[in-house]
C-alpha cells in the first residue's frame, strides 16, 4: 500500500484529453436533461386537467397531457362484443308470443330478418310455415323462429361452446368459434338452424366489419347461423327485426320478469300471463322437454282465411302421414 502512495501523480497529456472528453459528454447529457425538464414543465400548464370516468364508475381528475386516446382496434372490439354477447342483458328474460290468428302470411318478418342478418333467400332464421295437423283440421300459417329453449338440445351437443344459452334466455351462436360439425342441426327438433354452405351473399361488403355475435354479421362460410331474437336491437332497447316488421300484429315481445309483452305492430303492451291465459297459449312440442321461450296463441277466429293456393303445400306433410 505504502509503495503506491509514494508514486508520483503525474498527469500525462493523454489523460488530460480523456478527461476533457468525459466532461464534454457529461455536459451534453446534463444539457439535454435540463431541456427535457423544461419541456416536461411546459406540459404541466394548469387548466388542462380533465375528468375521466373509470370502469369502476369512479370519477377522477387527470392532466390532459397524461392521457392517450384509446384506439379501439378490431381485435379488442371483437373481444368486447363477444364478452357482452355471452353475458346477455342483465335482469331480462326475453319471451315471444306469436298470435297465429293474425298471421296472413305477409312474410315481412322473413324479409326483414334476412336483410338484417345478411342471409341467402333460402336461409330462414324465421320461417312462415303452412301447417296442417290432421286431415279434418284447419290449415294455418305459423311463423317459426328459434324457440330459444330453456333446455336447448343444440347447446348440449355443441363440442366447442360455440352455441350457448345466455342468462337473459337467448340462444346465440359465435361463428368465430363454430367448427361446422352441424351436430346442433341434427339435435334441433324445430329445424331452426341454418348453415352457411356457400359464401355468404354480402361477404365482400362485410369484409371489414367487426363480427357482432349479437347480429351474427358478417356471416361466415362453413358456420352455423340462427335466430338471435335480434339481440343487437334488444341491447339498444328496440324490438326484434321480425316483430317490428310485421304489419298484422302477429308478434308480442317482452320480458318475462316484468310479465309484460308489447305488440310489434300496435305497440300495445299487455300482461304476458294474462295474454297466455285468455288465449290458451301453448308451446311447440312441449313433450320433448325443451322448454321453449316462444309461445303460440291458437289460430282461432283468424283475421284472414288460409289461402287456397297454399292448401296443397300444407297437406304435403299430412300426405306422408297417411293420416
Amino acid at each position: 500500500m505504502s509503495e503506491k502512495e509514494e508514486k508520483p501523480k503525474k498527469k500525462s497529456r493523454r489523460d488530460f484529453l480523456q478527461n476533457i472528453g468525459l466532461v464534454g459528454v457529461g455536459s451534453v447529457f446534463a444539457g439535454s436533461a435540463i431541456l427535457a425538464g423544461i419541456k416536461y414543465d411546459k406540459k404541466k400548464t394548469p387548466g388542462a386537467r380533465i375528468k375521466v370516468l373509470t370502469a369502476e364508475n369512479e370519477l377522477l381528475e387527470i392532466d390532459k397531457n397524461d392521457t392517450t386516446k384509446v384506439k379501439i382496434t378490431k381485435a379488442e372490439d371483437l373481444t368486447l362484443l363477444q364478452k357482452e354477447g355471452r353475458e346477455g342483458i342483465a335482469g331480462k328474460r326475453w319471451v315471444m308470443v306469436v298470435d297465429l290468428s293474425k298471421c296472413k302470411n305477409a312474410r315481412k318478418c322473413m324479409s326483414a330478418c334476412q336483410n338484417a342478418h345478411h342471409l341467402r333467400p333460402e336461409q330462414h332464421h324465421i320461417n312462415v310455415l303452412k301447417m296442417q295437423e290432421g286431415k279434418n283440421t284447419a290449415p294455418f300459417y305459423m311463423a317459426k323462429p328459434c324457440q330459444h329453449c330453456d333446455n336447448p338440445p343444440c347447446v348440449a351437443v355443441c363440442p366447442v361452446d360455440a352455441t350457448f344459452k345466455r342468462p337473459d334466455g337467448i340462444v346465440l351462436i359465435d361463428n368465430e368459434r363454430c367448427i361446422g360439425c352441424r351436430f346442433c342441426i341434427a339435435a334441433c327438433p324445430y329445424s331452426a338452424r341454418v348453415f352457411n354452405w356457400a359464401t355468404p351473399v354480402l361477404e365482400e361488403e362485410d369484409k371489414n366489419k367487426t363480427y357482432n355475435v349479437e347480429l351474427n354479421v358478417p356471416q361466415r362460410k362453413g358456420t352455423i347461423s340462427k335466430c338471435l331474437f335480434s339481440a343487437d336491437m334488444l341491447r339498444e332497447g328496440k324490438m326484434p327485426y321480425c316483430v317490428s316488421a310485421c304489419p298484422n300484429g302477429v308478434y308480442y315481445f317482452g320480458d318475462e320478469n316484468e310479465d309484460a309483452v308489447t305488440n310489434g305492430t300496435t305497440k300495445e303492451t299487455v300482461r304476458l300471463k294474462k295474454l297466455l291465459e285468455e288465449n290458451a297459449g301453448y308451446r311447440l312440442m312441449p313433450e320433448l322437454g325443451t322448454e321453449p321461450r316462444v309461445y303460440y296463441l291458437p289460430p282461432k277466429n283468424r283475421t284472414a282465411p288460409f289461402q287456397e293456393k297454399d292448401k296443397s303445400e300444407a297437406e304435403e306433410h299430412l300426405d306422408n302421414n297417411k293420416d
Binding site: 303452412k130 329445424s191 311447440l284 306422408n320
Partner: peptide, 9 residues
C-alpha cells in the same frame, strides 16, 4: 322427415 315441414326452400 323432421317434426316440422320443410318449406320455402
Amino acid at each position: 322427415h323432421p317434426y316440422l315441414p320443410i318449406q320455402n326452400v
